[in-house]
Design a protein around this nucleic acid. Sequence first.
DNA 1: ATGCCGAAGTTACTTCGA
Length: 262
Amino acid sequence: MRPMRVATWNINSVKARLDRLLGWLESAQPDVVCLQELKCAAEEVPVAAIEAAGYEIAAHGTGRWNGVAILSRVGIDDIVRGLEGQPRFAEADEARVIAATCGRLRLWSVYVPNGRDVTDAHFPYKLAFLEALKSTAAGPAAGPAPFAVLGDFNICPSDDDIWDVEEWPGTTHVTKAERAALAEIESAGLTDVFPRALKHAWPFTFWDYRNLDFPKNRGLRIDLALVNAPCKNAVTDAWVDRNERKGKGASDHAPVVLELDL
DNA sequence: ATGCCGAAGTTACTTCGA
């Protein structure tokens, strides 16, 4: 058994955020990082700079939106892009899932569709994506090997996971349908690892750039780490690195970090 | 202080995000 530090971070453009990413890799020393919202094609990812920092990278990106990646300094094998039966939106295959085996851990980096509005076609697309996620995850979730699904789920699991649920009447991220879809995924054998907050009462992971939301701590907990039983048994600590949300050029999401004894 | 939105494609504005 040896410690392994695994993180998930919606970076909101890997190109615009490259300096922050490299600085965070140096200061936080993660072994594996799941990234979401690369906002560029896979061939435009700044691979050389990331490799120079000591990480291998597997990326899945198609253009200006979406895009996911896994960075690892403990090996990266058996890379798979997309879900079995992943739904399409506007006849496009979106880059929202990439899987790899890093050390003893099988993990996925996932960017769940936003949903936009409950009356928008993007909302049933979000629910269909979550169903495909459950179907594809069920096998490894029930298996004997450590397995984790990490990423931006765009769902607040409970009313406590938003600063004030009354502020979002009838909107996405807090509906019964989304929470039921998340509960279905968890029923396949996955547990939502609840991280420590480094400040304030609750470990929010996202704060909008607008309206002083970060200083006022008007946040959401939507970046999650779902782990199967063998992985859960290895978790020794978890936290949200809210310090990375501070300052000029920050992403609007903070990294979620897990310590595992694998 | 953590501070009033930001990225990207395109070129004055649009789409997207939560």
